[in-house]
Write a protein that binds this DNA or RNA. Structure first.
Lengths: 235, 235
DNA sequence: ACTCCAAAGCTGTAATACAGGTTGGCATTC
DNA sequence: GAATGCCAACCTGTATTACAGCTTTGGAGT
């Protein structure tokens, strides 16, 4: 499928393909070092300029990591690039916030089912702690938001499927930009309390290993969140 | 020289940030043209080299499109970059094929529900046609696979939520690499027939606007597919 | 108005230069 | 022999110049 991408006709595109192939053929794992720019330029018969631009492309997708003076290394999977792609889609009106929430609901409903069944004791504690930290930071929205995001990432991790983490992470960029809107629309103490309670309920269900209750609590959470966003006049 | 709080200290990273900000602030939409490399280099006080590498980064994520002689343009959302990210995760053993299928099942189960409710007549016809095309190409695996992939993309489109299309598309790169394995493991006529029938059942349920039957058919489809991959010895 | 073409503008690639960070090995010391 | 400190080689980040080839633009001619 990267054949299509590297067919662009440019030297850079085909160099990206060559480097990708090199990673696969040599079975390089995250952390392994790639050849230097000069070496690749010589081996592939292109200028260092071309190799550098190819490296930048791969680094943008977090397939490799670059840092000054050091060789490029193969990167661990990371949702940073996906996050930017989603943000771009939203900012150019190709994706709405509601559509993001529809997908999140689908994904996270499945996540809590798996998390309830597979979470370790440690993970259950982390999830519970994040919910508690949310309650403790009711007066500091930025801190509260950070714990909210961390809560959902912890759930994804407990599902034991890294792809869920990737997708949840991909939405965090845009979510962190819209979260304050939802928060400000919760004007009453009750509304804010309800949001916290939903998270605590989810955490409790995960801790008890009860998938049905976890799903039900997550559904309530999304109902409440979407209601908050709509009442703020979002799409 | 602006030191954006964005990424690591590099000039390229902050230039990427500056260009992204420019797209947002000027509210550029897909197809709109960006300033030339030389203009940006002058405005941002960096060399053309830096601007080019920033452009490459954004192009890798399909946030902008580059082509010779022409100005860079803002790009429509596209799953190409995500596809490469997923492939990288699988090739470096950070993601397993089974995990991909778990996520696909979750996503596509939701997709068929929405598709059954929201599909237009045209979309219903396209979906049915792709299923028919699959049956018609039983002896040509490459063609059959193409229609299989197109079938699932058509379902995603009918869900009327572009994010589902993005995710399904993100999996197509790696799917097209593993599909032949599953196909070869279906050695009997019955097994191959069963696979086609599952697709036809899904198409029929969508055409009739019956979400429950569509979900049930999709579940059968995934049960059968995963069984085929496991019998082929895949993780 | 319309067509066609040449000039101007733009991107793709190469080559060179140098500053500053990193690495590995060597010498020194304990 | 092990730990430490230091230096030279290597590597990446950025700037600059040059030129080929493609695209767009604006004007000349009809």
């Amino acid at each position: 499928m990267e054949q299509a991408a590297e067919q662009g006709g440019g030297l850079v595109s085909s160099t990206v393909g060559a480097i990708t192939r090199l990673i696969r053929e040599q079975d390089l794992m995250p952390g392994d070092r790639l050849p230097s720019e000069a070496t690749l330029a010589r081996d592939l018969q292109v200028s260092r300029t071309v190799v550098r631009e190819a490296f930048r492309s791969l680094a943008a997708m977090r397939i490799i990591e670059l840092s000054t003076g050091r060789r490029a290394t193969v990167a661990p999977i990371d949702h940073g690039a996906m996050s930017l792609i989603i943000e771009h889609g939203v900012h150019t009106d190709q994706i709405s916030i509601q559509q993001i929430y529809d997908v999140r609901r689908t994904i996270e409903t499945r996540i809590v089912t798996l998390a309830a069944l597979r979470r370790t004791e440690d993970e259950a504690r982390i999830i519970t702690d994040e919910a508690a930290a949310m309650r403790a930071s009711l007066t500091r929205p930025e801190v509260l938001m950070r714990h909210d995001l961390a809560f959902h990432m912890a759930l994804a991790r407990a599902s034991k499927n890294p792809v869920f983490g990737l997708i949840v992470g991909a939405f965090q960029g845009i979510t962190s930009q819209t979260w304050p809107i939802g928060w400000r629309s919760r004007t009453t103490t009750e509304a804010r309390e309800a949001m916290i309670v939903n998270h605590e309920r989810i955490a409790a269900a995960i801790a008890e290993g009860d998938p049905e209750r976890a799903v039900a609590a997550m559904a309530l959470h999304f109902d409440e969140s979407v209601r908050a966003l709509i009442s703020a006049g979002l799409t």
